[in-house]
Nucleic acid binder design. Structure first.
Length: 577
RNA sequence: GCGCCUGUAGCUCAAUUGGAUAGAGCGCUUGGCUACGGACCAGGAGGUUCUGGGUUCAACUCCUAGCAGGCGCGCCA
């Protein structure tokens, strides 16, 4: 029940009817008309800008037109208690008590689905996220993207869409060769007491490689590790598998679970790259050619060579992109072209990729690929999660997987906790860099916004506990015939905004709106709660230790929104803290 | 040089996607607990929304030209 949407339709219909009668002129496109929340000082429930939008066409002052239109609107709606026109030409509407009774009744019966977008087509989404190289555990930088992708998926699911959460495993190419070599040398270190060359910049020095080496030795007692070449392929496979176990365990501790892991080697081995390149060649999107050197200062060692290129400039990219290396193996990009073709073949309505900011430069070519492959029928939606700036001991902490110097996800979760990590990482727009100060989050956990919201839910549970109601019980109220106070209506107004918060988060793929909203709602609740200290009449439980149906409906409504919001965020709502 | 992101209170960030007097938290400051849970609340100070131009009833938001910071830009993945 999105009241803004409902009234937008109502008002639009009224305008159309009036224009048919010739009483008012309306433009063909009514998109700029809206129904919104008004600033609090006006003490009204909804507000519309129609008079300002229509004033020019009707050659009338906005405020004059507003008066005329407000009378018409009031005549057409029984829920309206009062309607006012304000300064530039806004029309502000206040509802009768009946409206709020119906509203609460609706929320309580909707319960777990309150806020869901109504009347939308159910779509099949593919969300690809994390997709970090399988050469070791995740680090904190990956967490933001992991949580972002997970919650975007939750938002889509909440709105009844079907979602497949996917991880693309780049288990092919040079990095994997280096990684496998590193594992092998650690194995030799263990079995043959040869020192691992830690100063070699072409190897992975991290300690986790030792663990991987140990695991492989233990699980493969029958393998002869004395020579690399004969076991290279097998070792590569095992190493990636071990690495993925780390990754999965990291994701698990963040509360993130992918539905599917797609391996680049499978794509390559199934000849999907060959097929897709042939397809693109037939479409004249692939050719033999040369790329110009970048205009950077240090391009003195640039060698121009002829190679197989994808014509991504046809689709707005800055330059065409190489598909094949000089040794005739496929580039990473070629594999990704085939992978996106693979995605398209699975008939999703929408494809979403969550990328780290360091891969943002990749978006144009990916969009180009999907456009070329789908014949412009399907578009890829790429969402970038900006950097997480880790701060430790008051200083920025630089992490490097190559140097083996980084904070692991396990460190993070054991110090901060899953829920707090999720809530904090989600509470900022993904377009903005995030300061993550370990010490602050740890020491000042009481100031953590997560607890502020959870505390609100716990307080409601506490009230219910006093009158022997479990928050999870369904509420049965016979007659919704209450008179909510202004303080309560202020909170109910906030609750009317929940469906639109969900809608915006979903349309724009912007989860941060949800924690921000929940914090605001919690704030209004705490404020109301404290009124009960000065004025006993404003407490939920009266002197006889009873609670009225009105208060139950009010508290239950708030709890439903908090619960639904926190569920989407994948964060717990404890009954006691 | 080019592309993407960012620029809002001392600091960290919001802003109903073009709406009304731009809002929170932290910090600073003045108050409120014999409690339906103080992990809370009420008040105060703090702003030329990076700059210049444009679009319109209305611009933090859109267009344009700059400035500043971050990320990226080869057969790495």
């Amino acid at each position: 029940m999105n009241i803004f949407e409902i009234y937008l339709k109502k008002i639009t219909n009224i305008l159309i009817e009036e224009s048919k009668k010739g009483l008012i002129k309306i433009p063909e496109n009514l998109d700029s008309i809206n129904v919104d929340v008004a600033p609090e000082k006006f003490n009204c429930d909804i507000s519309t800008n129609i008079a300002m939008v229509l004033s020019k066409l009707n050659e009338s002052e906005p405020i004059t037109l507003a008066k005329k239109l407000s009378e018409i609107i009031k005549k057409n709606d029984v829920n309206i208690d009062n309607i006012e026109t304000v300064k530039p030409g806004f029309i502000n509407i206040k509802f009768k008590q009946n409206f709020w009774n119906d509203f609460c009744k609706n929320i309580i019966s909707s319960d777990r689905i309150y806020g869901k977008i109504e009347n939308t087509q159910k779509n099949k989404y593919l969300v690809e996220f994390v997709s970090a190289n399988p050469t070791g555990p995740l680090h904190v930088g990956h967490c933001r993207g992991a949580i972002l992708g997970d919650v975007i998926s939750n938002i889509l699911k909440f709105n009844n869409h079907e979602v497949v959460k996917e991880y693309y495993v780049n288990d092919y190419g040079n990095q994997i060769k280096i990684f496998t070599k590193s594992v092998y040398l650690r194995i030799r270190e263990i079995l043959f007491k040869e020192n691992f060359p830690t100063d070699n910049p072409d190897l992975y020095p991290g300690d986790y490689i030792i663990q991987i080496a140990k695991n492989i030795i233990n699980e493969n007692k029958n393998i002869d590790f004395s020579k690399f070449e004969p076991i290279a392929d097998k070792l590569s496979l095992f190493s990636v598998e071990q690495s993925l176990n780390f990754v999965k365990s990291n994701l698990n501790s963040l509360g993130v679970k992918h539905d599917k892991f797609v391996r680049e080697t499978d794509i390559i081995n199934n000849k999907e790259v060959d097929k897709v390149v042939d397809f693109l060649r037939n479409k004249k999107f692939v050719y033999e050619g040369k790329i110009k050197a970048p205009e950077s200062e240090s391009n003195s060692d640039w060698v121009e060579r002829k190679q197989l290129l994808f014509k991504s400039t046809d689709f707005g990219d800055d330059k065409d992109r190489a598909l094949q290396k000089s040794d005739k193996t496929w580039t990473y990009f070629a594999g990704d072209v085939a992978y996106h073709n693979n995605k398209l073949s699975r008939k999703f309505h929408k494809l979403i990729n969550i990328l780290g900011s360091d891969h943002a430069g990749y978006i144009k070519r990916l969009n180009a690929v999907v456009e070329a492959l789908s014949g412009n029928k399907n578009k890829l939606n790429c969402k970038v999660s900006q950097l997480v700036k880790l701060i430790k001991d008051g200083k920025p902490f630089k992490m490097s997987k190559r140097k083996g110097d980084y904070i692991t996800v396990e460190d993070l979760i054991s110090e901060v906790g899953k829920d707090a990590t999720r809530f904090i990482m989600l509470s900022r727009s993904s377009d903005v860099e995030l300061d993550f100060d370990f010490a602050k989050v740890k020491e000042k956990s009481k100031e953590n916004p997560l607890y502020y919201v959870q505390y609100c839910y716990a307080r409601i549970c506490s009230v219910f506990r006093h009158v022997n109601i479990d928050i999870d019980d369904s509420i049965h109220i016979k007659n919704f015939n209450f008179k909510y106070s202004l303080n309560e209506i202020k909170i109910l107004r906030k609750i009317t905004e929940w469906p639109r918060c969900v809608q915006l988060s979903c349309d724009k793929l912007e989860p941060h709106r949800i924690p921000v909203y929940l914090y605001e709602l919690a704030s209004e609740f705490h404020s109301y709660w404290n009124l009960g200290k000065d004025n006993e009449a404003l407490r939920f439980i009266n002197k006889d230790k009873k609670i009225s149906d009105e208060k139950i409906s009010f508290l239950k409504s708030i709890s439903i929104v908090i619960k639904n919001g926190m569920n989407i965020l994948g964060v717990d709502t404890p009954k006691k803290m």
